[in-house]
Design a protein around this nucleic acid. Structure first.
Lengths: 396, 396
DNA sequence: CGTGATACGTTGCAGATCGCCACAAATCGA
DNA sequence: TCGATTTGTGGCGATCTGCAACGTATCACG
């Protein structure tokens, strides 16, 4: 319940303009006036301040075949970047992501075994140190966003529980902040995936969506509710994988019986295909190519269970879009009709009638973009706030 | 993506102040300055404008044993009211609800059979016409809020499907608006229940909560996500009753198998108790008094199924609070421990650890308050907007 | 009962931001 | 080349909030 004053207006308007060019890409000043409803002169002043701060760039109007004086194009500065970090079972991935959503660089550092928190932090810090020259010369770094495959407490980046990494109550954000000097934010990987798909992938402009990702280690998810990422009271929201879908005795990674994650697994798909290891694309190709009735039966079984979980979430959340990533997208690709009709069977007509199912679009850059988005959030909220300093700026 | 200007600042600040006295009750001007962070002089001006518009009243400072000049108490005007309408299977209830959340009057108009839309509208309009003298003399009416037991399309108040009333695609809001001359908004009853409990009941000040209500005709629900009521893309969100909780063949009112609403019913509780009809309080008393093992077994069965649905919702939404209303509150009262431990078994530790289960507090006024809240929303968003006119003001 | 301390209301003024308006500039089409 | 159209630019006015100084009501203490 905060009152607002003039500086808040300015802050808000700067934020709106920067968000627009961040999310919708380059736009002319006249487009900005139309979308924001602000006055031409106001937009001019706002853009000038953003240019001043090095956040956006104005460039020559492109030749649109329109009458009237051409309007300069406003686009995001290529210098402003965030660092993205994603620890996994077998690697730590670090990326440099521009404010325009472009992934400038991505380094995957493989590990022999699942890294401890300290190892993950050290790897990330070392890779970032290696990039430091480039970062300081070419970029302004806003901060670091970390996508963690587990439950992360929102406000301080404490990893409550990352089962597949074996992390429990680890102060990841704090450690990485101390090791690099950059401000660090962390969140659940699937929640960030939802964010990324929402702004840069299948869910552009959509205010209510559910994202479910199927990975080697289980099923996670995230949601956008009413235009805002829904994290719940502590940032643990989106755990669709532990939704009950059957009365069976199968147990998931959290020890809960009959859940989506217990019934719908990547491992079992690989087994019936006789594959040992395969990335998501290969898995999808193999599933599409297979004519084996055994494979088909397993796919059907998993689709039917997935449908129950999706229908439940659709009934509760009434989303506009359900985005499926990882091997769940493969299931959709193999038999979208079966999935759709199974979802229809378990959901209310009205809610089902307003929803679309679709596959994720961002592929391997998904988590880099999502994690960077997390780091950009502060800047987007208050472009005139603490300057997006050069490397090594923020104190511990 | 709207820009804001100075009138927006004023609007916002008026809105903040009015919301504060609406939700937290009377407050001194000095309290308002502290909570809003605004300047003393600004609060003085804002309150003066709200007084001018007849929305709030300033009264003599109460004798708080504090040094310093006493600060006038700002409270909501008793004249500002909304009308609440709630059509049910066997009655239409109409109420006058003050901006302070107080229910000034409630009229329950019983019907022989489930009313058609036209009947419900006529009854409501007739009752309101009956009150007209009083309304015009004593009150300023903001509008009408309708709590509908079914799916309601948010933006125009079209009742998509109210199964128990047998309504399909009925333009309820439009009809009632034409019949009464007041602006009408409609929404799902359980969603409004969530809203009411959040502001005036068990969920005061909580930003993430789930509300489930068990009624004679089924189970509905609503949620507050990140501080805002979550309606989904079309206002159909919150249908927890159709969550799958078992593989059984039982079918719910929407024809879906094995759902919460199919397994957990008020009717079956009454049956094992040997009761014919009973209101919620009587049902709870009878359950608490009963020592029959048959009753106990049925209660346990329902609790266990309820727990599955709650756990699923908790995993997905990570709420701070789950509020149970109607006969679900009775189940909680009979064996809270069993429900809690069953929920724990099906949910993630981290999400379960942050959630509380509690019974609804508002009882029979719940839907009146919720529906009124819906009608107040426009005024709270923009206190300086179109005047909360006396009766008969707003054109059709 | 009077005095000082404290907290708050009140008033006038300054600062900041946005909208409006008039004019200039750039483009298209004839 | 000229008019129509669209947009940038710069000055002006309106509005709202914050600030500071002063007035006022209460409490505590002697």
């Amino acid at each position: 319940m905060q009152g607002s004053s003039h500086d808040d207006v300015r802050r808000h308007n700067l934020s709106v303009v920067l968000r627009l060019v961040h999310r919708s890409g380059a736009a002319s000043r006249s487009q900005l006036t139309r979308v924001t409803g602000l006055n031409r002169s106001t937009i001019a002043a706002l853009v000038a301040e953003l240019v001043e701060r090095g956040l956006v760039v104005e460039s020559e109007p492109s030749s649109t075949n329109q009458v009237g004086r051409p309007s300069p194009i406003v686009s995001v500065s290529e210098q402003v970047v965030a660092l993205a970090v994603n620890p996994e079972i077998d690697a730590v991935t670090i990326g440099i992501v521009g404010l325009d959503g472009q992934v400038h660089r991505r380094v995957r550092y493989p590990t022999d075994q699942s890294p401890s928190v300290l190892e993950a932090v050290n790897i990330a810090a070392a890779v970032i140190d290696g990039m430091r020259g480039e970062l300081e010369a070419r970029f302004k770094v806003v901060g670091i966003g970390v996508a963690v495959p587990g439950l992360v407490r929102a406000h301080d980046g404490l990893v409550r529980h990352a089962p597949h990494l074996g992390w429990i109550d680890e102060p990841l954000a704090e450690m990485l902040e101390a090791a690099t000097g950059y401000p660090v934010l962390a969140a659940n990987d699937a929640s960030l995936g939802a964010l990324a798909e929402r702004f840069f992938g299948a869910g552009k402009g959509i205010t209510d969506l559910i994202y479910l990702n199927g990975g080697a280690s289980g099923i996670g998810g995230g949601m956008i509710v009413g235009g805002a990422p829904a994290g719940g009271i502590a940032g643990y929201a989106g755990e669709f994988g532990h939704t009950r879908v059957s009365d069976s005795e199968r147990v998931d990674s959290a020890g809960i019986r009959g859940t989506l994650e217990a019934e719908v697994t990547r491992r079992e798909l690989l087994e019936v295909l006789g594959l040992d290891g395969a990335d998501t694309d290969e898995l999808e190709q193999a599933l599409l190519a297979s004519t084996s009735p055994v494979v088909r039966a397993e796919v059907n079984r998993q689709i039917d269970h997935l449908a129950v979980a999706l229908a439940g979430a659709i009934n509760i959340l009434n989303p506009q879009l359900v985005v499926l990533g990882g091997f769940l997208a493969a299931l959709l690709a193999v038999d979208a009709d079966r999935l759709r009709s199974a979802v229809a069977k378990h959901s209310l007509d009205a809610a089902f009638g307003t929803v679309r199912l679709s596959a994720a679009e961002l592929g391997s850059n998904l988590l880099m973009i999502g994690a960077a988005e997390l780091a950009f959030e502060g800047l987007l909220d208050d472009p005139a706030g603490p300057p997006a300093a050069g490397a090594g700026a923020v104190s511990a």
